[in-house]
Simulated scan of single mutants.
Amino acid sequence: MSSLHGKTLFITGASRGIGLAIALRAARDGANIVIAAKSAVPNPKLPGTIHTAAAEVEAAGGKALALQCDIRDEANVEAAVAATVERFGGIDILVNNASAIWLAGIEDTPMKRFDLMQQVNARGTFLTTQKCLPQLRRAANPHVLTLAPPPSLDPKWWAPHTGYTLAKMGMSFVTLGLAAELADSGIAVNALWPRTIIATDALNMIPGVDVPRCRTPDIVADAAHAVLTRPARGFTGQFLIDEDVLRGTGISDFSAYAVDPTLEPLPDLFLD
């Protein structure tokens, strides 16, 4: 299978950034895209809403369903899944993309921010997967793909921002556990992470990042597409890196994904 035509993707946090890029790549195949995100009205600091994302998906050739959804709220997620089934008849693929970030040490991390990261990242991934699971069990080639790094207990990834690392690694450990739990179900449960820092609108809110040395979200979207078009059964529990996935498809020149191809890209926060 090399196309996602007719497949239904439920993508959290798809109003902008990597989630939107994954949605648009699938839309070009003629996929059905559920844009499940909180942003229903414009934000002057973060451009993009579920409605603008839906318009882009439709323009790219897909069918879109814009759903305002807070993945911290169980009833909200249940309602979003029900609306998806009513519109498209089921769910073939879940992309757990939504994530909260706060890059600071313990003394500079308000508990409100700490709680938000834990609720959105690990808990939100677990909750959304749980609610989509009955539909995924009925799908012909079901995938769960979570944007999370390879799990690590190396203190160098924890010391600079324990709260964020705990939340992000929480997504990784949810992936690890669910892949094992669902191994006999035929549902692929994998994680994908970029080799380099990705230039997103949210990144602009983090001071000190050299954006020209980043790559665009398209590299993650193309890698996700390569993963999601693979046979699901037996392909699970993998912690994949975008470059490695694309090399497996024959791509070795990544300069097209660079914000500035003349500069060496910045390594990601969780990768050597």
Rank of each mutant, 00 (worst) to 15 (best):
G17V: 00
A21N: 11
I22G: 03
A27E: 08
R28P: 05
D29F: 08
G30D: 09
V34T: 13
I35S: 04
I35H: 07
A37T: 11
K38T: 15
K38D: 00
A40T: 15
K45T: 14
K45P: 01
L46C: 05
G48S: 13
T49P: 11
I50Y: 05
A54L: 11
A59W: 08
K63R: 15
L65M: 08
A66W: 08
Q68M: 08
C69D: 00
I71M: 06
I71V: 11
D73Q: 13
A75W: 00
A75I: 00
V77E: 04
V77F: 03
E78Y: 01
E78L: 05
A79Q: 13
A83H: 05
A83W: 02
V85A: 07
E86M: 05
E86L: 11
R87I: 06
F88Q: 10
F88D: 09
G89N: 10
I91D: 03
L94C: 09
V95R: 10
V95K: 11
V95T: 12
N96R: 03
S99L: 05
A100K: 05
A104Q: 12
G105Q: 14
G105E: 15
G105N: 15
E107L: 14
D108S: 15
M111H: 13
R113T: 04
R113F: 07
D115L: 09
M117K: 00
N121L: 01
R123I: 01
G124H: 03
L127C: 09
T128D: 03
T128A: 02
T128P: 02
T129N: 02
T129M: 14
K131Y: 08
P134I: 03
Q135T: 01
L136E: 04
